[in-house]
């Protein structure tokens, strides 16, 4: 476990900014407790300082996980968000997309969101913007990237993709072994 380098912090924030923009500062600057980002076995964890201090005494091999896993650093130096970060992303998301009840299961199985399943979407969402996918009762299901802007998606066919799947809560079952 170690703090992120400046380069790593930058790549992490660039990815997070696609979903929550400048709201990242609410993750760092919290009133309740000091939180920090830590890297352990290529995974980035968002963890409170008190827990991090306790985890310091655990050996590198023995330490499985701590705090909330936000994602992992790939070997090419990119950052990949994991579904475990959804709680924080949904809380501060700038753009959201609601899917109809008949579209929930297809999305949870890892498919893209098609026009027919689109319930509603935040106004003026640009193209290729990170969005949080929720069901109609506002439960976050995962996140993705918009294929079209809000205005463009009106003209689409029902089978056309409106948002590309990135992560969904079905991964808690499908990728239990590698997720945390």
């Amino acid at each position: 476990m170690r703090p992120l380098t400046e380069e790593e912090t930058k790549t992490l924030f660039e990815k997070l900014a696609k979903y929550i923009g400048s709201n990242i500062k609410h993750l760092i600057d919290r009133s309740d407790e000091t939180y920090c980002f830590r890297l352990h076995k290529d995974r980035v964890y968002y963890v409170s300082e008190s827990i991090m201090r306790k985890a310091v005494s655990v050996g590198r091999d023995q330490l499985g996980s701590l705090g909330v896993c936000f994602g992992k650093m790939t070997k090419t130096g990119k950052f990949r968000l994991h579904i475990t970060a959804l709680d924080y992303l949904a809380q501060y998301a700038k753009h959201k997309m609601w899917v109809k009840p008949n579209g929930e299961m297809p999305f949870l199985y890892g498919n893209h969101v098609v026009k027919a399943h689109l319930g509603r979407v935040t106004e003026d969402t640009p193209e290729h913007q990170g969005v949080i996918v929720l069901n109609m009762s506002d439960v976050p299901l995962g996140f993705g990237v918009t294929a079209r802007s809000t205005s463009d998606s009106r003209k689409l066919q029902p089978t056309d993709i409106v948002a590309f799947h990135q992560a969904d809560i079905g991964e808690y079952l499908r990728e239990e072994d590698t997720l945390f």
């Binding site: 924030f13 660039e14 900014a17 923009g21 990242i24």
Partner: peptide, 11 residues
Amino acid sequence: ILNKVVGKNGE
């Protein structure tokens, strides 16, 4: 670092 990143593509 955040100010540098968000100043560029956040807002």
